[in-house]
Design a protein around this nucleic acid. Structure first.
Lengths: 228, 228
DNA sequence: CTCACTTTTGACCGAATGGTCAACTTTCGG
DNA sequence: CCGAAAGTTGACCATTCGGTCAAAAGTGAG
């Protein structure tokens, strides 16, 4: 479950009103955000119509605008929430960890994210493809720092010969690309393998092999048997 | 040919008129397609405005609609052209090839595509994320067939122990994901590594390591030294 | 040059859509 | 039970945008 932590500067009608988990506004906002995530992720910002978001949320359009003053503002709230989800999932990778184990877990975490929040993943993708106009700053801030930090750990592992000598940043790009492709390119994958059950086929049958391939590709070894 | 074209109402200036490489129409169409690819790839179908496409092509809006009757039609032409490019690049992989060599070459081909046609890649991505409404049929047809055919080759390699036992289709998904991420997620990658020269940094410095990791991950071996 | 056809262009139109608003209803502390 | 604040609603407005059109300009064969 995604935490709906609403922290916005432009609080709708009056001050901090519908923010308390019990209030009517809170539930409405939740419904709206869920609907908006779905519509934005499929149509992109411009393609999404406020009217459609409202319908999905089971509310009249005017009510949606009541809570989130403008479409743009609503989009910002949604995309930032998705980013939070994404950044949380980055999780921890510690230098003391067993490389193979740590990265396997990380990959699993990312795959779970794709599996359970495919719309969020797609929305994120659309935002990036469009040049990340809204979350660009965050990427250049938090994400960049995270990569720099974890990259140092990778580097250490590489010095010890427990990871292949690949640029740490690119290692992440690979992992992200592969794990997210199952959410973002679901339509293509379905077209190619026509699974009866996408979820099972991909995340249960396919995932182990893919994870193994990534770990092998990154040359990750367990403590007991160092690389080469 | 003049009289014949008069009858057709649905096709702009007759489907066959502006098609000859020398005619005025041909060059105009070319300019329009180029402009449209750029705008569609950045804004998606709905976000793209015909007016903007026209401006980029250096033409009045009316002229664009003159050649491509509707925005939708223009989009179809553009996306199908992109798909052709994508399918062409699939190229040939033969059972007789050395696995390591063949896949390395294939990866390079895909990377070149991302490098030289990033907009096409992004447009393709947007189409897929949106559920592939226009090219879905093609994916279920040509692409699916291609994957089935090449998958058989992978299977043969695996029987010989020259490729890791990963589902062939997923092997392709991995390769596609990784190679396309450099075009599709350029904004994110730039945010993380702030390269002075994206092209050089990614495709010259980063590519070799990434290619190696993929090949290693897929457990591809040259003929001389079989896997395991 | 003439004539038939193609291409260009900007004015214009109707539909769609984001956003406003005022009237109305619900909620809830005191 | 009262009253103020929060929330609901649909009508309405202004703008945007895809598409049409007619008139003008270009083109090229005979």
């Amino acid at each position: 479950m995604a935490r709906i932590s609403q922290i916005e500067k432009t609080t709708p009608p009056s001050e901090v009103s519908g923010t308390e988990p019990q209030s009517v506004g809170f539930r409405q906002r939740e419904k709206i955000i869920r609907a908006a995530t779905g519509v934005f992720s499929q149509k992109g910002y411009d393609g999404a119509r406020v009217e459609e978001i409202a319908q999905r949320a089971g509310l009249p359009k005017g009510n949606v605008l009541y809570y989130y003053k403008t479409k743009k503002n609503l989009y910002r709230v949604v995309i930032e929430q998705v980013l939070s989800l994404w950044l949380e999932a980055l999780g921890d990778i510690s230098a003391d960890d067993d490389p193979c184990d740590a990265i396997s877990k990380y990959i699993r975490r990312k795959l779970d994210l794709s599996r359970h929040y495919p719309e969020a993943s797609r929305l994120f993708a659309i935002e990036i493809i469009g040049g990340a106009p809204v979350i660009g700053e965050h990427l250049r801030g938090r994400l960049r720092d995270w990569v720099a930090q974890k990259g140092a750990i990778f580097h250490a592992w590489q010095q010890e010969g427990r990871m292949a000598p690949i640029d740490p940043a690119h290692a992440f790009f690979m992992i992200w690309a592969v794990t997210q492709t199952y959410a973002d390119f679901q339509a293509q994958i379905e077209a190619v393998i026509s699974p009866a059950d996408y979820d099972a086929e991909v995340y249960e049958k396919g995932a182990p092999g893919v994870t193994a391939a990534l770990v092998r590709g990154l040359g990750l070894s367990s403590k007991k048997q160092p690389l080469r």
